[in-house]
Structure formats: structure tokens, C-alpha cells
Design a protein around this nucleic acid. Structure first.
Lengths: 193, 193
DNA sequence: CTGATTTCTTAATATAGTTTAATGCGGATG
DNA sequence: CATCCGCATTAAACTATATTAAGAAATCAG
């Protein structure tokens, strides 16, 4: 993946001309993180939202018993960050770290607000982005209630076919809300068929 | 609750003057539904988003085995509807029906788009609404993975203290992702303490 | 007011998923 | 090159929650 994809990604949602793009793009800084490095720790304020150019980020929470729960993976052309903290300035609920060496473009909140004032249609872009995420999370709440772990796993694999090869099984188990041991069990059961 | 609260609700997010309010308000129709009546059935297109003036709505999905799963309850001053269907025109995933006799204000998508063009700050209002819902659903995904049914129940009660008296236990169980029998069990266990 | 229907409770039994623990493997590191 | 550490696998025992069933209580329709 490369940075040209970023403009395509935006253009899929709103029409922009070259000068609008130039201004938009100028608000982003580039940043590289190595595997296992953090972009955000829970408790800190989330200063930036991140657009992934290459690599893979993980957004997760650590509960009171020390267990990790993965909210989402962000690969090429996905956004990451703690939206609530970014917008409110309150401490973040989520951690964001890198599962692979990763390159991101980052924007801070004041610049984003300036962008909204200067070119309002970018407010539309972000509204639609958030809408889509919102709808995905609504469905995920229902799926986690109505489907078995095996069904959720099969949906995950079909929805993110290449991701399974790139990240550890225990990360996938954590995303699915099950233990790595039980995911192993599920995979064996499926392989037998 | 009454209709004056609607303006307060909007004003908490964006500043509006009287004429902006008048225009905004003129886009909404009023509608009353009796208990058990539907505002939306899964499979239909969601024409309106609903703002609840009084009563209580339930947004839920029915899975392939015929089990209902409640996504949310909407009481006074909450929104309801199937956001994805409303915006895309695709068939709705969710049902919306009334748990009490309910009065709503409703707006359709073309009117909402006209509003955005005429008074862009309303796009901001809806962006922020959706952001808040989005964040709530993110947290709910994590809570459903990391907390026991009893913990989730206690959070529900403290978050919506008066709602428990208004709706059936089985609705709450469905929202929590457990059976009514198990909720009964949890409540007895808590009462004993 | 009354019978009918739905909801709630309780308890016995069943199951999906967890915990613990032992074993082997592959990839990072000195 | 050897070592080590995290990860995946397997299996046995365990637990949270589901299922089934039946009676009690509450609510609704006529």
C-alpha cells in the first residue's frame, strides 16, 4: 500500500479537487512505528487519529483482571485511534499498538476542527466514516450475542481473509472474545470436516 | 417529557437561534404508536429517524433461530431507527417497536440532506450524536467480552435506574445477552446479599 | 370481574467455553 | 550455534450460562 491510496479512500466518500486535497494532506504528519510499539496507551489523551499506510495496528483494552480484549485491527487504508478521547480530551479507554512495523499518517484535533471550518465537506467525510464504524459495531454487538464462537470465527475469516496469516491466533481469539485454546479447538474441528 | 426538551437536547450540542430552530423543527412530523406497534420491520427500508418525546422504543434483531436480541432501548430524548438502512436505502437489519405507548418526532433522509445543505452546523449535530453512539457501542463490545452477566446487569441498572421498573425483565435479559431465567437467578443472588 | 395469556421464578440437567497444565515448535537473540 | 521465550496444541477438570419444564404471579382482553 502507498500514500496515493489515501486520496482514493477519501474520494470514495466525497468529491475533492487538487487544492482541497493538498490542504487536507498538508494537515497530516507521517510516522513509523516498529512492531510492539505503542501509538496510544489507555489513560493518556489520544492526540491523533491515525490512517494506516502499511502494516497493522491493534486497538484493545485491558480489563481489571489484566486480560486483553481486541476491539479492532487496522490494516492498510483503515483508521485507528480512541475516538472518544481524541474528541473530548479525556483519558483514552483503549491502547493502540503495532502488530507489524507500521506507517501511519496522523492528524490532531485542532487541525481537524480547522479543516471542518475551512472545507465543511470534510465534516461530511468524517461523519460518514464514523457512521460506517458505528453500524459495524452495532452489528458486532448483536453477532456476539447471537452467534457461536465458531460462527464468529468463520465470519472473521471470510471478512478478513488475508489477516489470519499475518497476525497471531491469540490476537484473533481476543477479537472474537474467546481463549486461544478454544480457538485452537474450533480450528481443529473445522479442519476435520 | 415534552417537545420543548427537543430544542434543549439539540442546544446542548450546537448553538442555534430561533429561526434555525423553526426551520429544523418544521422538518419533523409527529407520530404516535401504541404499545407493541412497529415503527420499522427488518427487511423494510428505514424511512425515518425517530426522536422519542414520551414512551419507550426497542431496537432489536431476530436471529436465524427466531431469538430476539435487543440492541437498545430509546426513552425520552433518545433517537431510534436503523441508521444504515436510513442512510443507504438498503433493507433494515433491525426492528423497532414500542414497549409503551410512545410519541415520536420523525424526519426523513431527503429532508435531512436539505437541512445539511441549508444549515451545515446540523451536520455537526448529527456527527456528534453518531460519535457518541459509536463510542457507546465500542464500549459495549468490550464490556460484553470482559464482564460477567451479573456485572453487566449491575451496570445496566445503575446506568438506566428507572427503566427497570418500566419494561419487562425479559427485555433486559435480551439486552444483556442472557436468558430471562438466568437474569432471574442473578437477581435472586443479588437480593440475598 | 374473570379467564386467558404472558411473564417471572425455581430447579434439574445440559453444554459452550474457560482454566490449568503439559508438550512441542519456531523464530528471535546472545 | 545453542538457548530461550512466546505461541500453538491437546486434554482433563471446571464454571458460567443455556435449556427444559413446571408452577406462581402478574397483566391483558373481553
Amino acid at each position: 500500500m502507498n500514500k496515493a491510496d489515501f486520496r482514493k479512500h477519501v474520494s470514495r466518500i466525497i468529491d475533492i479537487n487538487d487544492s482541497e486535497w493538498e490542504y487536507f494532506r498538508s494537515l497530516f504528519g507521517s510516522r513509523k512505528v516498529k512492531r510492539k510499539e505503542f501509538l496510544l496507551r489507555a489513560g493518556e489523551v489520544c492526540i491523533h487519529e491515525y490512517f494506516v499506510i502499511s502494516g497493522c495496528l491493534r486497538t484493545y483494552n485491558i480489563d481489571t483482571n489484566g486480560f486483553e480484549h481486541v476491539l479492532m485491527f487496522s490494516v492498510e487504508n483503515w483508521w485507528a485511534g480512541d475516538m472518544h478521547s481524541f474528541l473530548s480530551g479525556e483519558p483514552a479507554f483503549f491502547n493502540v499498538d503495532a502488530l507489524e512495523d507500521t506507517e501511519v499518517l496522523q492528524i490532531n484535533n485542532p487541525d481537524l476542527e480547522r479543516l471542518y471550518k475551512k472545507i465543511p465537506k470534510f465534516e461530511r467525510y468524517f461523519r460518514i466514516l464514523i457512521q460506517n464504524s458505528f453500524v459495524n459495531h452495532q452489528k458486532r454487538v448483536i453477532q456476539n450475542m447471537s452467534l457461536s464462537a465458531e460462527e464468529r470465527y468463520l465470519i472473521f475469516v471470510s471478512k478478513y481473509p488475508k489477516l489470519e496469516q499475518r497476525i497471531a491466533q491469540k490476537q484473533i481469539a481476543s477479537y472474537l472474545g474467546i481463549t486461544p485454546e478454544f480457538l485452537s479447538h474450533i480450528r481443529r474441528k473445522i479442519a476435520k470436516k
